[in-house]
Design a protein around this nucleic acid. Structure first.
Lengths: 242, 242
DNA sequence: ATAATAGTGTCTCTCAGACATTATGGC
DNA sequence: GCCATAATGTCTGAGAGACACTATTAT
């Protein structure tokens, strides 16, 4: 979109052989205290029987964000989720059928949204994520069924999933993404559980509390959790600072 | 790339109206001790007379990375630069001619590469960047000509430029991007100058030295800078840790 | 010797980890 | 009163900012 030659090339829509653009969504939530993704089993070739991220093609008159939101709605039945662009995958042989460039989005689901998507008859299945590396080192991620069996992933979706986990870990302590996985009211222990699940490592309780409260993101509701057989914890709410 | 309907849609290349995919490069380097970008003045409409990032359309048989490298070569005459994907811009009205989705790349140039691109007859002009926000707050960025006059940017390129600066600032202290702007051998003072230019704020000398040396990224060469009228500083080299 | 910057020693402050202790609600 | 967990106080060590001081080279 800069030189004259390209201007002319680009100006006549039929004069240029175009590729196909898609969006793929990494739907992440918590399942049984550990990080999990929602996947679809592919019925048709290529990669039939393997597991794929829900995705869809981007319409000619559709903004990228809108395409991602549409996939979230149509494939997972959800209208509310933290959605952010992750990375664009543009290798030649991602899909054996044709050239498809895909913009990957990270979608973070609250426990309720996660359950809703699973129950919605969408065919989505929860896969817990096995992350064998610590910190932000990066590396492969294994998706496992409830029983523990590895789920082979279609296309380059293992790579996309791994990048999603890396991004999530990286943003966790300086951004608000941690709250996207929690309900509106939550205890500090729940917040810590979320962080520990994402980081894959235990955290120090007093230090965690101090850090979170000092951030100014939390406002106490005065309410307390119910149903415990011991001292109930205070419920907090996320509040965007100022 | 997931459901059956989309599979069929996507399988016949002529059955689907395709958009155009481009790459745009944010070429950043240092000019006169401050952060600067290389821009091209648009000759034709739309946005004639405004300033644009160098870019190009992505070929149907061309990986995204290769397209970025091609633009770097053809538009700036460079074969060596730190190149990393920044973000994909996919709004509907980015370009008034037609729907163009653009994958933005961040290219970091050493002082030598920066000068080479300027001298290569490519038409690129150095614009110093005026960043009116501190830290990683984010916000608009103004490109200015050598005299200080603001250069109006074409399309959504002001937004892309701002995101590039934000990304660079964010990655500076935990990644190796700072070294991409330096020659192979450099002094600690030069490294600090680079960091200060990117952050737009002065840094504490002893603390900066300690941090950098403790990272394990630097290896002393035993050589010293030449041409000073005072004590010459030791020259270091960047060495990927282990 | 002087000038000018390279390079270091040290104090302090902040902040996180570790651990122990106190507080509190349900039974 | 007992239990289990919430919530907090305090010690310690790592690391950064501030500032002063020493080292070294060209002239």
């Amino acid at each position: 979109m800069a030189s004259e030659a390209e201007f002319l090339d680009g100006y006549d829509p039929s004069a240029y052989e175009r590729l196909t653009l898609a969006v793929d969504l990494v739907l992440l939530g918590l399942s049984g205290g550990s990080l999990a993704a929602l996947l679809l089993e592919r019925q048709a070739h290529p990669h039939a029987g393997r597991w794929a991220l829900p995705g869809g093609l981007v319409g000619i008159d559709e903004p990228l964000e809108a395409a991602a939101a549409r996939v979230l709605r149509d494939k997972a039945g959800l209208t509310q989720a933290h959605l952010e662009q992750l990375y664009t995958f543009g290798g030649l042989d991602r899909d054996p059928r044709m050239r498809i460039v895909s913009v990957a989005y990270l979608a973070l689901l609250s426990e309720r949204a996660f359950a809703e998507a699973l129950a919605g008859g969408s065919g989505l299945v929860a896969a817990t994520l096995d992350v064998p590396w610590a910190g932000e080192a990066g590396g492969p991620v294994t998706a496992r069924a409830a029983g523990g069996a590895p789920l082979p992933l279609a296309f380059d979706h293992a790579e996309i999933l791994a990048l999603a986990v890396l991004r999530l870990r990286g943003k966790l302590d300086y951004s608000e993404v941690g709250f996207a996985l929690l309900p509106e009211h939550f205890t500090l222990r729940q917040l810590q559980d979320v962080h520990e699940a994402i980081l894959g490592a235990p955290l120090n309780k007093p230090a965690f509390r101090r850090r979170m409260l000092d951030r100014g993101w939390l406002s106490a509701t005065g309410l307390r959790e119910a149903g415990t057989s011991f001292r109930p914890a205070e419920l907090y709410r996320f509040q965007r600072p100022r």
